[in-house]
Amino acid sequence: MAQPVVQTIHRDPALFWWILLPITVVMILTGILRHYAMTLLQTAPKKQTLAQLRQQRSLVRGITLRTNANVLSPSSFQSRKAYMVQAYQEGKFLADPEARGKPRPNPMSDPAAMEGMMGMMKGNFAMMVPQTLIMGWINAFFSGFVIMKLPFPLTPQFKSMLQSGVGTRDLDVRWVSSLSWYFLTLFGLQPVYNFILGSNNSANQVTQQMAQMNPGAGMMGPEQDPDKLFLNEAENLEVMEHRWILDGVEDRLLAKYGL
């Protein structure tokens, strides 16, 4: 069997100046715009009452005590643990002591939960709108002809997506239209954003979608019963094994210096 004929297409060099470059510049500018839009859309955390703040921070205090227990001497850890466990079990830190043991209200009716959902909606919105606009722009202006050849082969399944509007049956899949350059920039521009905007930018929708898979795991959501969280933390403190970091420090020191 003969070697398949290598298809060559002569293209106008002006394609680079009028298609590749504009798409790239628009993608970079959209990323920067999205970053600043997300920064501006972020709502400041709502001001909480003193009791709510105390409830939240005292739970964090218990967790901090548990993670850093190693640096405390046994006696000081025991006294802290005794105080925290007792206070947790009595519900001393609860913002609303009367609501203890009652079922929680429906999260849909809670305004704080609605606020969180609105924030997520805004994030999705800021991602969807530019994506749709740019894809529409590319389809309207630059569809119907191939502009470049990919340096690696693809399976024929990609033909309909990457050669949209070309409509030649036998053309190699490696010849692609401008929409595929859009996809390449969509995935490949993250380093460019990193260098322009710093590492914690919110310019790329792909990374954002990945981050949204587990939103705020371990945070104290408004729908959780604080009393249950406190009792849970009290139990964690009760069962934890405490080991002082300075146990046997003399032996370690002597071993380290070989005496």
Binding site: F16, M148, K149, L150, P151, L184, F187, G188, Q190
Partner: peptide, 16 residues
């Protein structure tokens, strides 16, 4: 992904 992006761009500009 950054590699594929610039690879495609320069391959398209220089060779194909």
């Amino acid at each position: 992904s950054g590699f594929v992006l610039t690879w495609t761009l320069f391959y398209g500009l220089v060779r194909a």
